[in-house]
């Protein structure tokens, strides 16, 4: 592959995509965004890497096998229901902590965010599992 434009564009685009995906994930509760959208965006950033530089590099950036992300994400989402269970509420009922921080004021943390982070990782894992499987099939045929 000698797509120079693609490679240069990827070099600058994919970090931006990853950061934006985090922003989308975090602001999702009040503005358009959320774990699902954030996950898709992050996955497209890495899929771009796979397309421009090959899936090996994308895998290195990801560090862990995307299937691990699926499992980890699902576990996170599942476990976000535990605080509610422990206090006798129905499973997955939202729980909030609002610790007061200097300068920042009250920081809204809650199990819905925890849950959303789980979704974020699951979606990344799901998308990249498929992308890598296809890309590696492709590479094997080629070389």
């Amino acid at each position: 592959m000698s797509a120079v434009i693609l490679r240069i564009a990827t070099k600058y685009l994919s970090p931006v995509l990853l950061i934006v995906s985090l922003v989308l994930l975090l602001r999702g509760h009040n503005d358009p965004g959320g774990g699902f959208i954030g996950g898709l965006l992050a996955a497209s950033g890495l899929a771009l890497q796979a397309l421009a530089y090959g899936s090996a590099r994308a895998r290195r950036l990801l560090r862990y096998d995307p299937r691990t992300f699926i499992g980890g994400g699902l576990l996170l989402a599942l476990s976000s229901g535990i605080p509610a269970l422990l206090s006798g509420e129905p499973w997955l009922k939202g729980y909030w902590w609002k610790p007061e921080l200097p300068l920042l004021g009250a920081l809204p943390l809650g199990t819905p965010l925890w849950f959303d982070i789980g979704i974020y990782f699951t979606v990344i894992g799901f998308t990249l599992t498929i992308v890598f499987a296809l890309a590696e099939h492709d590479e094997r045929e080629e070389y």
Binding site: G28, H29, N30, D31, P32, G33, G34, G35, F36, S80, G81, W91, L92, G94, W96, P108, G110, P112, L113, F115, D116, I119
Partner: peptide, 17 residues
Amino acid sequence: AFGRNVVNVILVDFRAM
């Protein structure tokens, strides 16, 4: 649920299951 984005609140809280 402390969220202004109703869609997302439904996704992660009301209908999280």
